[in-house]
């Protein structure tokens, strides 16, 4: 398909139809046929603004799940480029490592408590999110049944 085979139709021209549709909408707006309530509602539903990106919520929950399981004991800190110098860099890194090990003795308990708390919070958020999805489904089914 170096170039697409187009379907010519003397009765239907989609681009002209869309122009007519758009002109019709503008006319309705000008003449006040569209209520302010409807205009405001449509404004809220603009493409790209929909908040129900369920897969994004799941993605962030999964991210939080991974991040809260961080192994603080063996965490590797990034080395800034200026510490790549042959002698001074090694000395600074050794001092930093010593301070970290010294502090770890005092901070381990606090960190572990925080990690434990994070894990519980993430599990709670995940459970609540799953429950919301379940309840939304149930509500939707019940409403349909009620109307039928």
């Amino acid at each position: 398909m170096e170039e697409t085979f187009e379907i010519k139709d003397t009765d239907i021209n989609v681009e002209e139809l869309m122009e007519e549709i758009r002109a019709n909408i503008e006319k309705k707006k000008r003449e006040g046929i569209l209520s302010s309530e409807k205009l405001a509602e449509a404004e809220k539903l603009k493409i790209g603004d929909t908040p129900e990106h369920a897969d994004f919520t799941r993605h962030y929950i999964k991210t939080a799940e991974v991040l809260c399981n961080i192994d603080i004991e063996h965490y590797k800190f990034g080395i800034p480029p200026f510490l790549n110098r042959p002698i001074l860099g090694h000395i600074v890194l050794a001092v930093k490592e010593f301070i970290r090990r010294f502090l770890r003795f005092h901070t381990r308990g606090v960190f572990n408590q925080q990690i434990d708390f994070n894990r519980h919070i993430v599990q709670l958020v995940k459970g609540l999110y799953d429950r919301i999805v379940e309840l939304e489904k149930e509500i939707s089914i019940l409403k349909r049944k009620e109307r039928q």
Partner: peptide
């Protein structure tokens, strides 16, 4: 849609 005249957008 434009090339086919088979749909709207």
């Amino acid at each position: 849609c434009q090339k086919s005249n088979g749909g709207l957008y």
